[in-house]
Design a protein around this nucleic acid. Structure first.
Length: 556
RNA sequence: UGGCCUAUGGUGUAACUGGCAACACAUCUGGUUUUGGUCCAGAAGAGUCUAGGUUCGAGCCCUAGUAGGCCAACCA
């Protein structure tokens, strides 16, 4: 009997194929290469899970490598945030690397390339270079500087390195072919002059390598076997291989670049540039705003590492355009939190209930189960008294029989407490219900074992004792965009689709056990949803964020 | 008059490299339940972009179309 084999995704198939042919298991090595110019988002989670997952599966090292070749956009704040997020997801990198660690090696190789006639310094404006690049359908033309002598190139490149060349004047270009069908092969730029301080190398360098030159060679230096990137880099592969050929030593492994489709999530955007725009325009408060699809935003919203990793695994990896529905992500959090989150009671839209036959000064501490899915979670005590809050929407003067809640003359079970019957209600001058007067069945206490306690009543409501309740600020969140794919229509700015009601702040009345809730703890507010203690929460001022609502099959 | 990539239920992935299209989410029924949650049972939903071809047999192979994506930053 062989266990049903889980089918391999196309990346794993490539590796299995390589293992059969030209690679040993020991040679396998991967990397996750973020640019520290923004925070990691749910799209990166797929890449992280892919690379680190492969590392776990094949017991191979995975480096965390910062692709920090552009000092104008990159900051160490982002480096720290990225490390925090990867760790939080539960992955351990083998080495912490930086492309900037390889600047000297890259420079030396570039000098070699100049000597071999594979690179030259171009002194044209960027406009002229762009002009000569041609278009996808027409060939490019050679730069007038293309055939400078090796000596002149060496001298000019040296001057660039020393900062003697002004920014924007000279660049180093690979000498390939201006007639190449692949535009990336039309003498791509390897170095530009940038007299900006770098977050790690300070002012040591006045020239910085471009992505194509730096990335592949970084893979090579670290001896990464498989370099996985997103689909838009597919045309870069030819150049990746071209550079590798110029640099590779006979006895070293040449990394292999392969591409997979980035994952898009419905009702949001996954692009650092667009996310940054949301922040700069004040549409969200920060990178870790709970509405953001960033790892840090999701953490603050109440997502767990397991839920994100499970999500990434369940959506798989492919090569076609895709938009994963938000409901699938929500399913993954609920699935995880259902097992882990303690159940508590809290009322978010209160309606006062008076139990008229319950003594004024009496209070009882009732037993409540912390998690029906997890017996080891234990029990806690809940205070009950004459005046309670229930949700406004849980009471109607009259309703049809599909309404399993409180209505005049009918009974309902108060979770973990008594069966009550609505006798009358009080209204204000506008006819709004302000109070419901009920009577309770004294023998019906939950768990008391009496006949009355075993009576079946259709509805069960959550509630909280008014005099014992603790109040908390509750952040309610909804999807950030009103349409599935905000960037689909190129004629409409994606910001037009922003959901103006994505955030609402209310006051909640919670059972007193929540008084000591700690930052980042997860709870299920019964019958409502999952909530997480916000990082700004204090014992003197609790703050909860709604992660996701409970699945609700009632079409009321 | 360019190159490269992709095309399977509403969504996302499968289909042992040719053998009557599977799984998850979403949807809809019913059951259990002191959460209209969870759990359990079940249903509906694609004949695999189109047209040819090879083959006893094609979602898988070939050809030609069609549709979508990417490529002309001194960004990554």
């Amino acid at each position: 009997m062989s266990a049903p084999q889980k089918s391999l995704n196309f990346i794993e198939q490539i590796i299995e194929e390589d293992l059969k042919n030209n690679y040993t298991k020991e040679q396998l090595q991967f990397r996750f290469p973020p640019e520290p110019n923004g925070y990691l988002h749910i799209g990166h989670a797929s890449s992280i899970c892919l690379n680190f997952g492969l590392g776990l599966k094949y017991n191979a090292p995975v480096n965390l490598r910062f692709d920090d070749t552009n000092p104008t956009k990159e900051e160490s704040e982002y480096v720290d945030a990225i490390k925090r997020d990867v760790e939080w997801l539960g992955f351990k990198w083998s080495k912490e690397c930086y492309a900037s660690d390889y600047f000297q090696q890259l420079y030396d190789w570039a000098v070699e390339m100049i000597k071999n006639g594979d690179a030259y310094v171009d002194s044209q404006t960027s406009e002229a270079i762009a002009e000569q690049k041609g278009t996808p359908t027409t060939s490019g033309t050679d730069s007038p500087y293309r055939n400078r002598s090796v000596e002149e190139n060496l001298k000019l490149f040296e001057a660039m390195k020393n900062g003697e060349t002004p920014e924007g004047r000279d660049v180093l270009r690979a000498k390939i072919s201006m007639g190449a069908k692949n535009m990336l092969m039309r003498d791509p730029i390897m170095y530009r002059c940038l007299h900006k301080p770098h977050h790690r190398t300070g002012s040591d360098w006045k020239i910085y390598p471009m992505y194509d030159w730096a990335h592949g060679q970084s893979d090579y230096i670290e001896q990464v076997s498989h370099s996985f990137c997103t689909l838009e880099f597919q045309p870069h592969r030819e150049l990746y291989n071209w550079f590798a050929k110029k640099v590779k030593a006979a006895d070293k492994l040449k990394p292999k670049q392969r591409e997979f489709a980035r994952r898009n999530l419905s009702h949001t955007v996954v692009s650092k540039r667009k996310l940054l725009q949301l922040i700069e325009k004040g549409l969200v408060k920060s990178w870790d705003d709970p509405r953001m699809p960033t790892i840090s935003g999701m953490r603050r919203r109440g997502y767990t590492p397991d839920s994100i990793v499970n999500f990434a695994e369940s959506i798989g990896i492919g090569k076609r355009e895709n938009t994963v529905s938000l409901s699938h992500l929500e399913f993954c959090v609920r699935e995880d939190l259902n097992k882990k989150a303690p159940r508590v009671m809290g009322v978010l839209d209160p309606l006062k209930v008076v139990i008229t036959n319950y003594p004024e000064d009496k209070e009882e501490w009732l037993d409540a189960e912390n998690n029906p899915e997890d017996e080891s979670a234990g029990q806690r005590k809940l205070p009950f008294s004459r005046e309670l809050y229930i949700e406004k929407e849980d009471f109607r003067e009259e309703a049809n029989r599909k309404f399993f809640r409180l209505k005049l003359g009918k009974e309902v079970r108060l979770k973990n407490a008594y069966i009550i019957k609505a006798e009358s209600c009080v209204k204000d001058d506008n006819g709004n219900i302000t109070e419901v007067h009920c009577t309770y069945d004294e023998d019906s206490r939950s768990g008391s074992g009496t006949e009355a306690s075993k009576r079946k009543v259709k509805g069960t409501l959550h509630w909280v004792s008014i005099k014992h309740a603790v109040t908390a600020k509750i952040n309610l969140y909804d999807r950030l965009f009103m349409v599935e794919n905000p960037t689909q229509d190129k004629d409409v700015d994606f910001l037009e689709h922003i959901n103006p009601n994505s955030h609402e702040v209310i006051t909640g009345y919670l059972e007193p056990s929540l008084k000591d809730a700690k930052v980042l703890e997860h709870y299920q507010f019964q019958r409502i949803g999952y909530f997480c203690v916000d990082k700004t929460s204090l014992p003197s001022g609790l703050v909860f964020n709604k992660t996701v609502g409970l699945r609700d099959s009632w079409k009321g």
